[in-house]
Amino acid sequence: MESQQIADNAAAVLAFDAVGKAYAAPSGEQRHVLHDVSFAAPAGRRIAIVGRSGSGKSTLLHLAAGIDVPTRGDVRVMGRSLAEMSETARTTLRRDHVGLVFQFFYLMPHLSVHDNVALPALIAGDKPRQFEPRVAQLLDRVGLSDRAHERVQKLSGGEMQRVAICRALLRRPHLLLADEPTGNLDDENGWRVMELMLSLVAEEGGTLIFVTHSREVSGLADEVWRLHSGVLSPHAEAEAPAAPQPS
């Protein structure tokens, strides 16, 4: 059983192995945010992580993205242990294999829609002929082709999040991490964005891990995990979503 688990973890796009994370509080005391978290995300799976505010969801995503490092245990992305990697190597891994979608979109206000989407390719030093068709394809896919050269401040919240999703998918990441992607949108827009993201990930064949408060949204996942006080456990009540009807 254990050997099967190890084999699964090795094949997984993302694997947490007994991961713990603690921060030093201002008082000097250690504040434990995650306890002994273990799970694996195989290729092509859609996993939702639910939990209350402060349960450690964002920390878990930061660890998964290699933005932060665990205090205990190990995180593996594409079979590579992040603990053994330098900060630069983790950054490169994130740049080449991980996509991130945030609750607050985090778009660059001084860049156009097109340039925001292209940003990861610019950072990676890709040549325009490599990424321009992809940018056009993604914008077309999310219905923003005609707004490619507008400043992002002119977009609605739902449109901003669509831009952020395009940006996250630009370099065809194996792993897409989304932190409350609908948390800053109304129900209708949230639902549309979620559908779009899921279909895009499905088309790309990537693995999606998303954090959400919403039971409806979590119902779109293949599996749901619940994070409570830093402890991750399978959620028993994954249920079918009650989708709002688009007007």
């Binding site: 933005i67 950054t91 490169t92 740049r95 985090y106 940003l119 950072i123």
Partner: peptide, 10 residues
């Protein structure tokens, strides 16, 4: 920080 999260190196 966003650039860092998108893979920009120091």
């Amino acid at each position: 920080a966003l650039c860092r999260s998108l893979g920009a190196r120091g």
